[in-house]
Design a protein around this nucleic acid. Structure first.
Lengths: 260, 260
DNA sequence: TTTGATAATATCAACTTGATATTATCATGC
DNA sequence: GCATGATAATATCAAGTTGATATTATCAAA
């Protein structure tokens, strides 16, 4: 729909657009990088008892290309010319990790000149949350990526962020400014866990209240009182009537998320 | 600092970067658009009494170029190749409106293809808050802008957003997707007013509690109870001992923001 | 049946909140 | 002077929420 008005060069909007030359601006690229969190629910059996330790993890890929060849980075890629930013984030996840149809939300846009040695690259960071048990990781892009790994996170309140893969501490090994992106993602998650329901994107279909509380504690970075937690969460979950089959103590009931 | 490792083409990072051609990606631009809010404290005298009505306003500019020639838009511009996004937002404000050294925070990045008819333009939106009495607006860029104006906002809770300049209702007259940007800025402000101190960026040095409460009500979109509000705000402000000189009723004390 | 583990609920004082009522201080006008 | 009408500021208080600890429940093993 062309605007009937003419500008200072006597052009209508239609004429203006036909002559518009995009090359007049500096060369620059836009990428999306995704900070994917999930819970590692590792079950250890000690004596006759089951001990399960929950870990918050973030998904990293090992780069097989310059720059930062051989380093760990977040899964990312350039924004295609015909896709929205949300679509770009979903596509990048699909192309690099095999994950589909994941909960995402835009996190922050990082644009410091020099954050990428190739050229000016502005990165729109996305936060993604998945329940690991419902997804299967795959290294789709073996040309550019040699490895995928869940990286364990330690982030107690008022303490610095620590990242670990196996026995290797790696904040300093992380490519680009991606350690900052992970930190921002964690702070967003810590902030929103109290006034939204996003945490349930990390949970399996059924879960116990104790399990849920542990995840609140890991993300919040501090211990909570069980009766207080139960009161707060009660309105968001529905009991199933089923119970866990753990041994050596009273079984705990399984709940499901109750959508508002 | 070159990486000693070689990639699949046998190149070091240094060699890779020397041969890197940025032209392999689609043409695309990044802009910043700023949503500047301020309070219009208009003072009307009726009979012997002073009535002051507060209005929340957003700064708009009237475009003197295609596209959307003659329409109102947010002040915006392209990101320079050597500046950070925050610097770009501050520069754009300076270049288009004469405002300097303003409180800003990144809001959201809008990248829908087709949001700009010229080409793919990804816009990093910024939220800015100013105390109008401390700044002077200026139309610096008369080439591209014919007018600057504060646009009045009405946004009661659970109701749609309404915008007005003088007697003209203008949501539909706003260029690009800028009505959406304004709405997102308002929702951010409404959300953060309760758990941060950003509202004081809108306030003059000294203010009364009633004045502050009115601003909370406008931004929150709902009425508040005075004693409850006073209790909540008490820890954030310091009484000055000075009082307003209003006539016809008990004078109200002036307060200043107490930084934490 | 005792022990030791975790789950789940009960109890309760301290604190916070929403709401209304009361008191304070001014200018006006009879 | 004193009643009036306006807004500022505080008082009061019941109801609700929170933090914390104590108690009870249910299981398996020894």
């Amino acid at each position: 729909m062309s605007n009937p008005l003419h500008d200072q060069n006597g052009l209508t909007e239609k004429e203006f657009l036909q002559r518009y030359n995009p090359e007049t601006f500096d060369r620059l690229a836009v990428s999306v990088d995704t900070v994917v969190f999930s819970i590692d629910s590792r079950i250890q059996t000690q004596n006759y008892r089951k001990l399960d330790e929950q870990k918050l993890t973030v998904l990293l890929v090992k780069r097989n290309e310059h720059p930062y060849l051989g380093r760990w980075s977040l899964p990312g890629g350039f924004v295609g010319s015909q896709e929205t930013l949300d679509q770009a984030a979903q596509r990048v996840l699909h192309d690099k990790t095999g994950l589909d149809n994941v909960y995402i939300e835009q996190l922050y846009t990082f644009g410091h000149p020099g954050r990428d040695p190739r050229m000016r690259i502005i990165s729109v960071a996305y936060l993604a949350l998945i329940d690991r048990s419902q997804y299967r990781l795959m290294n789709v892009d073996t040309q550019k990526i040699t490895d995928l790994s869940w990286c364990e996170i330690d982030f107690p309140k008022n303490d610095p962020l620590r990242l670990r893969i196996g026995d290797e501490e790696l904040p300093s090994q992380i490519a680009f400014d991606h350690a900052t992106l992970i930190r921002e993602g964690l702070l967003r998650l810590r902030n929103k866990i109290d006034y939204t329901d996003i945490v349930f994107n990390l949970m399996p279909e059924q879960f116990t209240i104790t399990h849920l509380q542990q995840i609140f504690e890991i993300i919040g970075g501090e211990k909570l009182l069980a009766p207080v937690f139960r009161r707060k969460i009660a309105c968001k979950i529905t009991p199933t009537g089923e119970y866990t089959q753990e041994r050596g103590h009273r079984p705990s009931q399984l709940y499901v998320y109750r959508r508002p």
